[in-house]
Simulated assay, not measured.
Amino acid sequence: MQTVKSRIVMQLKKTGWLTPVALLTGCKLSPAIPVIGAYYPCWLFCIIAGVILTLITRRVILRKYKMPAFAGVIYTALFALYSMLFWLVFF
């Protein structure tokens, strides 16, 4: 039983240097898009795209159905989904 624990400890010691390396990968400049000479953060464009796509989806939903139950929860979830997908696909 002792050899199994020592193998695990040795493996953790060998790969222990990977933790700081993985944590330092996010240290770079933030993504920004130049628009008419000014730099805007990319998350701002993701929020705008999320709002626009949510409004389009709302219009489609209201054409086919009446007002859905829990509309606030549904539209908030759609906004978050669209914003995060936009970030994932384009950035």
Rank of each mutant, 00 (worst) to 15 (best):
T15Y: 11
G72Q: 00
A32P: 02
F79N: 01
Y65R: 08
I47H: 00
Y39M: 10
V4P: 00
K28W: 12
W87R: 03
L85E: 03
C42I: 14
T19S: 04
A22Y: 11
A49M: 01
T76R: 08
G37M: 10
F86Q: 04
P20A: 05
K66Y: 12
I47V: 10
T76H: 12
V51D: 05
T15E: 04
Y40V: 04
W17H: 15
V89D: 00
V9G: 00
I36R: 15
T76N: 12
V4F: 15
K66Q: 14
K14D: 10
S6P: 00
P34T: 06
I8Q: 12
L78T: 04
W87H: 02
G50F: 00
P20R: 02
P41G: 10
M67H: 07
K5S: 13
A49E: 03
A71C: 10
L53D: 03
G16W: 12
T54G: 10
I61C: 03
F45H: 01
I47W: 01
Y82L: 06
K66L: 11
I61G: 11
T25N: 12
V51E: 11
G37E: 09
L88I: 05
P34M: 08
K5C: 06
F86R: 04
K64I: 14
Y75W: 03
L81N: 05
W17R: 11
A49T: 05
S30V: 11
T19C: 10
A38T: 08
K13H: 04
T57P: 08
F91A: 07
L29V: 05
R63P: 00
C27A: 15
A22R: 01
S83M: 08
P68V: 02
A77E: 04
Q11K: 14
Y39E: 10
V89T: 01
